[in-house]
Design a protein around this nucleic acid. Structure first.
Lengths: 232, 232
DNA sequence: CATCGAGCTGAACAAATGAATAGTATCCCG
DNA sequence: CGGGATACTATTCATTTGTTCAGCTCGATG
């Protein structure tokens, strides 16, 4: 009775969507446990009763936000794979879990950086995804599992293309690459504090990627290429 | 009036220490905000009033646990540097902030893994440090800044020893290495879920370090050394 | 037009929580 | 020994929080 039983996206356009978006923003900023229904209601300019009227309970609202964020994640991911599939024709699966390993535009398989570019600059989605990955929720487990499968597929594709070695333990290698990628998202604010720039801003991603590409390309000892001199 | 004004460690041995340790354990498991004073009191087998009697308030207890964890961090760090200084005689500074960059036993500068070995297996300290790094507390800022300075010093030492290149941007390079190192701690449970082993267990650290050393050593493309064949 | 239902409000309630208070026991030091 | 401080308990209070409920508005529909 609370929501349309088929799908929530079609009827999402009125007060219900406003409440969900404000909850998403506040949850991303402070964490769901630290946000009260009254704060959400105030941010959405409605009464506290309306929030529970639409979603049943705070926990149900949290679940609704989880689903909405995961849906957005899937949609942005589909945009990414579609955009990457323009160059090379390959079997692009739909966003039901199986993904085609044909992206890697920057050369390092940075999922986080690629997603950031396809979201509004002030989107609360990245911060919410960060919290999903860090708390022990089921939605976070599903998200992390999907990211891990993407990382494994990406590494396998790079191996097939001769761009990488599978290493002694491909699963651990893919997990290492994925963890490094996610670390920038998880420690974004802290890194910005010590570095003086946001590593997920446009300029920051460039500076970060420079080091990532250098180390992934030739290891820690390889001298940095200043302007020319590409061959050691 | 609540605690001895000089230092808290000397008089810490009775009920006060029990309460602090139980609070540390519960805070590490669930996060400080999710733990109630009554839960801490029950875990310490005392009355709720005694908790606030010893620490004044829940927030003061949180600060006391923060200080205790940071002190433990400094102590373990000193053990590490002392143990590393046995081989090479160098100027080992005291744990007042400045550190000597002469460790790096594994060859990759893994601070997290080195610290884990110097703590009891079931210590709540790693999980608490993880939460310190992830929330926006001042203690977390101080801890992160210290880790960053250690990473910079370690990279500088490796450069001086010819074991690494400073890269185009040494600050970002050091931050990247540190973030990768911390990612294992931050995503420990999630990685264990998909990999099937704890990456911070003894066996897990070995498998993880194998890939880290391989990639940091020669980049992603370098073939894995199976048993012999060290030269490409 | 009447009525049904959905969106919505404001007040109220029960449970939980941090904190304060009064009082008791226990230990330490002169 | 004795007195004062300290460790500690049991009770109580004020506030916050999620949730419920009765009722209002208003557009659609038969």
């Amino acid at each position: 009775m609370y929501s349309s039983p088929t799908n929530e996206t079609p009827d999402d356009r009125t007060g219900r969507a406003i409440i969900r978006d404000e909850a998403l923003r506040l949850f991303a900023e402070q964490g769901a446990d630290a946000v009260t229904i009254r704060q959400i209601a105030a941010a959405a300019a409605v009464s506290p009763g309306l929030v529970v009227h639409h979603f049943g309970s705070k926990d149900a609202l949290r679940s609704a936000v989880d689903r909405h964020v995961l849906d957005t994640f899937d949609r942005v991911l589909a945009e990414l794979t579609d955009a990457a599939a323009e160059a090379a024709t390959s079997t692009t699966a739909s966003a039901d879990g199986s993904v085609s390993a044909d992206r890697d535009p920057a050369g390092t398989g940075s999922m986080a950086e690629a997603m950031l570019a396809h979201l509004p600059p002030a989107s609360p989605i990245p911060a919410y995804l960060r919290r999903l990955l860090l708390d022990g929720s089921d939605a976070g487990t599903e998200l992390f599992g999907r990211l891990y499968e993407m990382a494994r597929a990406t590494l396998a594709a790079m191996v097939a293309a001769g761009a990488a070695s599978p290493g002694r333990d491909p699963a651990t290698r893919a997990a290492f690459l994925m963890a490094n990628d996610l670390a920038v998202l998880l420690l974004r604010d802290r890194l910005a504090g010590v570095l003086g720039f946001d590593p997920l801003s446009k300029e920051g991603m460039s500076r970060w990627a420079t080091e990532v590409v250098a180390i992934y390309g030739g290891g820690l000892r390889e001298r940095a290429a200043t302007s020319e001199e590409n061959r050691p």
